[in-house]
Design a protein around this nucleic acid. Structure first.
Lengths: 347, 347
DNA sequence: ATGAAAGCGCTAACAA
DNA sequence: TTGTTAGCGCTTTCAT
C-alpha cells in the first residue's frame, strides 16, 4: 500500500535550497533573481542545490511580496472565434518576451459574465487586462480603469479616447464596398454587426461612405441588422435573397455571419458569385480553400494582439513609475483579399 | 496636473474593511468565507463595509495561506484550432461551477515550449493541469505527474493507462472508412496525422480495420503521412491526385489537413464529390456551410473538456484527502455527419 | 460569538 | 559579500 507515492511531493522552498547549499535564503533569492554581488562559488552551490531539489520558485509568495503577479487577463466574447485566438497569439508572443503569463476568459457576449470576470481578475491581482468588451458603455470603462490598467482590443467603447488597439474598420469596409461598386454592382446589401459596438458601427460607416461617394442609395431593405452570430447571418441572407428585387452583392460584417449567409445561399440554391457576389469581413483558412474562395478582409490579428500587449506593458510600467502616460487608440490597417466570391455584374 | 487620479487606487485590505465595520479581521474573514457563527448584525456591518470600499479579496494572499490557487492550467498545441477552444468551453463550464479559473497556454506543437510552460504553471502553483501534449513520451509523463495532478486531453501518451479523456478515434475512423466502403469505393486513400500521437495512430488503426474487414488493400501510395498541418494536407492531396491511378476517396485525419486537401483539389480542378469523395475528421461551422458541405466526424469537444475537468477535480480532491483514487482513460464517442463531399462510386 | 496572533514563501532593507 | 528579519494579506487555531 502507498507504494510509490509519486504525486504531489510537497514542493520544496528556498529554505530547503539554502540548507542544502549551506547559504542563507537571502543568497538563494539573490541567485534566483540574478542579482549581482554573489560570489561565483556560492552561485554554483545554490544552482546545484536548486537542480538537485528540482526547485521552482513560488510565484504566489513572490507576488504577495512584490505586489505584482506578472499575469495579465484577456477577456474575449467568444474564444471559439479564430479572430480572438489569433489575437491571443500576438499577445502571448509579446507577453512571453516580457515574462508575463495570460489568463484567458470567455464572456460568451454576456455583460454580467464580463463584470464577474473582471472582478475575478482583480482578485487574482492581475497586472492588467486586455478587453474585447461585450459592453458598449464608457461609464463602465471609468469604473474598471480604477481597478487596473486596461487596453481595449478590437471593440472600442464609444467616447473612449485612449488605450485601445483595433483594425481600421471604416477604411476596410469602405474598400470592400468600393470593390463591389467597381465591379458594377449597384444593388448592394449590408449585413451589419451589433450597432452598439465600434466594430459594428464603423463597418457600416465605411460602407455608407463608399455608397455615398458612388451616389448609390443604401436601401432600407438591403440593410440587414445582424449581431455577429452565424444565425443572424443566415436569417439575413434568407431575407435578402427572397426580396422581390434581391441585391446583386452582399457585404457581411464578420466571419460567423458569412458562414450563415453562405448556408442561406446554398439552401436557396443561389450561386455565388454568378447570382450574387459576397465580400466578407475576416479571413481564415477556410475562407480561402472552399468553393467559392471568399473575397474577404484580413484583419492584422497577430499585430493587434502584439501592439495591445505592448501598450498594456507601457501603461503598467508607467503606473509603476508614477508617470501616468496616456496611450492613444492605435488603428491598424486591414487588407482586402480578392478571390472568387465577387464577380463583375454582367447583365 | 494629477487631477483625477483614478487609476490604480491602492486596493484595500481586510484590515480596512474590519476598521470600517468596527470588527476584527477574523470576523471579516469569516463573513467572506461564509462561515457560520457570525451574528447577523456583524455580518451586515461587514458586508456594508465591503461594498462601501469595493473590497475584493486578495487571492494571492489567500492562496499562499491555504496552499492552493483554484487555478488550473490548460496546455494545447494550437489555440487557433477551434477543436481546442471548443474543448476549453467545456472545461470552463465545469471549472466555473467549482470556483476555478483557467490559464490557457499554447505550445505551438513545440516540446521544449511545453516543458517550459509546465514549469511556469508549477511555479504559479496551479492546482492541476489539462494537457494536450506535443510530446509522445510516457517517461516524461511520470516526471510531470510528480509535480501536480494531470489529466491528458485528446492526445494520450502511449503506455499511459490513467487520467485521460479523448474521442474514440479508432471507432470514428472505422466508421468513416466503412461509410466510404459502403458507397462502393475501393481505392481509398488516407492522410494520416502524426503517428507518434495517439490521435494519429488510432485513426490509422480504425481505418485499417475497416479496410481489412472489407478485404481491401491499404496501398502504400494511398497512405500519405501528414502531420496535422494544413500544408501537409495540401501536399498529400497533390501527391494522391497526381498518381497514375488516383484514389476515388480520401479520408483526412483532421480539420487543418482537410483544408489543405480541399485547396489541392481546387488547384488541380478536381471536383468533389464527383471525382473524389472526401471524409474528414473534425466538424465545424465552415465544414457544413460551404460547397461541398463536408462529410465529417464531429468529436464531442465540449464534453471532452467537461469530463476532463471533472476528472481533474476528482484527482485534486482525492490528493487532498490522501485517498489517491485512480482515474481511467475516458473514451467518448464521435458522430459521423454525412453530407455532400462523399458520393457513391458510379463507374 | 468574537478577537489576537502565528505563519504561508518570498523579497528587500538593513546589519554584519 | 553574506545573513537576519520584517512583513505582503490572508486563514485558522486558540483564547476570551
Amino acid at each position: 500500500m502507498g507504494s510509490e507515492s509519486e504525486t504531489n511531493v510537497k514542493s520544496c522552498t528556498m529554505h530547503d535550497v539554502a540548507r542544502l547549499a549551506k547559504v542563507s535564503i537571502a543568497t538563494v533569492s539573490a541567485v534566483i533573481n540574478g542579482k549581482k554581488g554573489v560570489s561565483a562559488k556560492l552561485t554554483t552551490q545554490v544552482k546545484e542545490a536548486m537542480a538537485a531539489l528540482d526547485y521552482h520558485p513560488d510565484f504566489v509568495a513572490r507576488s504577495l511580496k512584490v505586489g505584482r503577479t506578472n499575469v495579465i487577463g484577456m477577456i474575449v466574447p467568444d474564444v471559439t472565434n479564430q479572430f480572438y485566438t489569433e489575437v491571443m497569439l500576438g499577445v502571448e508572443d509579446e507577453a512571453r518576451a516580457n515574462g508575463f503569463s495570460i489568463t484567458l476568459c470567455n464572456t460568451n457576449e454576456d455583460i454580467d459574465q464580463e463584470q464577474k470576470l473582471l472582478g475575478m481578475l482583480f482578485s487574482q491581482r492581475v497586472d492588467g487586462v486586455l478587453l474585447a468588451s461585450a459592453a458598449p458603455s464608457a461609464a463602465y470603462d471609468r469604473l474598471i480603469r480604477r481597478r487596473f490598467p486596461i487596453v481595449f482590443v478590437d471593440r472600442i467603447p464609444p467616447e473612449c479616447e485612449e488605450s485601445g488597439v483595433t483594425t481600421d474598420n471604416i477604411k476596410a469596409a469602405y474598400e470592400a464596398a468600393k470593390h463591389l461598386i467597381s465591379l458594377g454592382h449597384k444593388k448592394i446589401a449590408l449585413i451589419t454587426g451589433k450597432l452598439r459596438l465600434s466594430t459594428g458601427a464603423d463597418r457600416i460607416e465605411g460602407f455608407r461612405k463608399a455608397m455615398q461617394e458612388a451616389h448609390l442609395p443604401v436601401l432600407d431593405e438591403y440593410l440587414q441588422r445582424g449581431d455577429f452570430s452565424l444565425e443572424s447571418g443566415y436569417q439575413s441572407g434568407l431575407k435578402l435573397m427572397t426580396l422581390p428585387d434581391p441585391p446583386t452583392a452582399i457585404f457581411s460584417s464578420n466571419n460567423k455571419m458569412t458562414l450563415g449567409l453562405m448556408r442561406s445561399l446554398a439552401e436557396l440554391g443561389i450561386a455565388c458569385p454568378e447570382e450574387v457576389s459576397v465580400v466578407s469581413f475576416d479571413d481564415f483558412e477556410w475562407a480561402a480553400n472552399f468553393s467559392p474562395r471568399l473575397t474577404s478582409i484580413a484583419q492584422p490579428t497577430f499585430e493587434i494582439g502584439k501592439q495591445a500587449m505592448k501598450m498594456l506593458l507601457r501603461i503598467i510600467q508607467s503606473s509603476k513609475d508614477e508617470v501616468k502616460r496616456k496611450e492613444d487608440i492605435l488603428v491598424l490597417p486591414a487588407k482586402l483579399h480578392i478571390r472568387d466570391s465577387t464577380a463583375s455584374l454582367i447583365n
